Simulated assay, not measured.
Amino acid sequence: MIVCHKDTAVVILSYNGTKWHELFLPKIVEQAESGYEVIVVDNASTDDTLQYVNTNFPTVQTVSIAINRGFAHGYYEALKQIKAKYYILLSSDFEVTDGWFPPLHTAMEAHPDMAACQPKIRYWREREQFEYAGAGGAFMDKYGYMFCRGRIFFDMEKDHGQYNDNIEVFWASGGCLVVRADLYHTIGGLDPDFYAHMEEIDLCWRLKNAGHRIGYVGSSTVFHVGGSVISYGSPQKLYYNFRNNLILLIKNEKGSKLLWLFPLRLILDGAAAGRLLTKGEFKQVFTILKAHFHVYGQIGKWFARRRECKRMITVRNEEGIYKRSIVMDYFFGKKKVFTDLPWKPKQL
């Protein structure tokens, strides 16, 4: 068990990540003086990650995972071995900035009812642009589709300071996720069966169903390379996005709503597959079908998980759910940026 002497543990899950540690770990370690300890979790890498970290960063502690069973499983196993007040789950392909940590810590201290939060996330390659995962705060529409301020589907905004505020969101990005350690463990932690993608949304939804808040802190900025393990647009990413989105709904949505929403989502996913079929994207169509049949084949397992989640529900906090269809507003209403939407998020 690693017991942190400072109240925050920045936990970096790494798989063959030496090249990212060479780029980004020096700044993370330098900024640790502002109040955190750094722990690198090696997720069964085949490169020299552990040797590199131990040799070059003696203040960084390490944890080894024997078998790589994905992003969610890596953190699930590692965080059982780390004791702190706050965890910051930081992917290895993130670059932090000067002063990135204090605003996040201050926000968590100032809002005891806030279970988790994230900073502003910009794209490492196009540095003025928001990044896909998390951007300027993340939300869900009434049909279970995810989107962000700064990124709606295929449209990315440039950061002009328009999202420098602190707001309540529906979910915080797992790439740079600050979470209260006690609540993380009480709620059951990341679900290792998600493997990768949307596992943080599942965690945040469970926390919100237990009455807690999720925040976005716009005065802290980090940069994300993105797609460093599972590349954007790959069949593997498409598979987990479709599969895990359905599992999210089964585990966490209200029963009365799930009765009509789940069949509707099957129709909508079928329409998405049909659109790809007309374009000759046969591999993607097969991937969507594979994702669905995985869910159907283990439906009993996911409803058992739903019963587990239901026991932890107190007062559902639905702040951050957009009460309209983001699909309709984007594709038919031509609302390409967040400020076009007839809705404003709640300030912290």
Rank of each mutant, 00 (worst) to 15 (best):
Q298D: 13
W302T: 04
H224T: 09
L276C: 08
H292N: 08
L266Q: 11
H212D: 01
L248E: 12
G274Y: 00
Q298C: 06
L259I: 15
E199Y: 04
E253V: 12
F262V: 10
S256I: 08
R243D: 08
N241H: 07
Q284K: 15
N244I: 02
L248I: 05
E281F: 04
V285K: 03
E200N: 10
V295F: 08
G215L: 01
N244F: 04
L261F: 07
K279D: 01
G297F: 05
L249F: 02
G227C: 03
V225E: 14
S231Y: 09
H212Q: 13
R243S: 09
K254G: 12
L203G: 08
L238I: 14
V295T: 12
S228K: 07
A273E: 00
K208V: 00
F194S: 09
P235W: 04
D193Y: 09
E200D: 15
G255K: 14
I230R: 03
H197A: 12
Q236L: 15
F262Q: 03
I214C: 01
E199L: 03
R265H: 00
A210T: 04
D193G: 02
K251Q: 08
I247W: 11
S219K: 10
K257Q: 15
T287G: 02
F293E: 06
V229T: 12
L259C: 03
T221S: 14
Q284S: 14
I214G: 01
R265G: 00
Y232M: 07
Q284L: 02
Y296L: 14
G280N: 05
Y239N: 13
S231Q: 15
I201T: 12
V295L: 10
L289C: 14
V217K: 11
R213L: 04
L289A: 11
T278I: 05
S228E: 12
R243N: 09
S219T: 13
I267K: 07
V285Q: 01
F282Q: 08
R265Y: 01
K251I: 12
A196M: 13
E281I: 06
A304T: 12
H292A: 06
I267L: 14
G255D: 15
E253R: 09
I288M: 10
K237G: 08
A272N: 05
F262I: 08
S228T: 15
V217E: 09
F282K: 12
L238S: 12
E281A: 11
K279P: 00
F242G: 00
G274F: 01
I201D: 01
K279T: 00
G215P: 02
R243F: 11
I247S: 03
N241R: 06
N252C: 14
M198A: 07
L276Y: 06
G280V: 08
G274E: 04
F303C: 10
K251H: 12
L266K: 05
W205Q: 01
H292T: 04
L203V: 08
H294Y: 07
H197E: 10
Y216N: 03
A196G: 04
D193F: 05
Y216L: 05
L248W: 14
N241T: 11
F242Y: 13
G226C: 07
E200R: 01
F242A: 05
R213G: 00
G226N: 08
V222M: 10
A291I: 04
Q236N: 13
L238Y: 11
Y296W: 14
D202A: 06
F194D: 02
H292S: 02
Y195F: 12
W260M: 13
I288R: 10
